[in-house]
């Protein structure tokens, strides 16, 4: 394994970014964005997760296969959540009145 050693500086920088992200999440939660509060919260969480995956978990330096594997996990998570939600979002669309 041509193992990649990430310098300590990168780790500290990511750590700082994660702390800022946490502060942003909390801050954004107190502003009324109506339906977009959850979008913003998930977006920030996704960025934080990406930073952890990319740098702490070394995926930035890993093979395409590993990247594909990570992507697969999130795609499948999306499949189960989105298809199930399609049911709940379209249930009330049409009621038959004789």
């Amino acid at each position: 394994m041509s193992e990649h050693i990430v310098s300590k500086k990168v780790y500290y920088a990511i750590f700082a970014a994660l702390l800022i992200g946490t502060a942003l999440t909390i801050g954004a939660a107190f502003i009324n964005l109506h339906n977009f509060n959850i979008v913003v919260a998930l977006l920030i969480a996704a960025v934080k997760a990406t930073l952890v995956i990319y740098f702490f978990m070394h995926v930035k330096y890993a093979s395409r296969l590993t990247k594909l594997c990570v992507a697969l996990g999130f795609i499948w998570l999306f499949i189960i959540v989105s298809i199930t939600m399609t049911d709940y979002l379209t249930r009330g669309w049409f009621t038959y009145v004789p």
Binding site: I79, I83, T86, D87, Y88, T90, R91, W93
Partner: peptide
């Protein structure tokens, strides 16, 4: 195979639109 599970739910309260898909 992961995209078809709802065919077991055709007679449940599952949305008919999702049922068609």
């Amino acid at each position: 195979g992961f995209l078809v599970w709802g065919h077991h739910l055709f007679v449940s309260t599952q949305s008919v639109y999702l049922g068609i898909i």
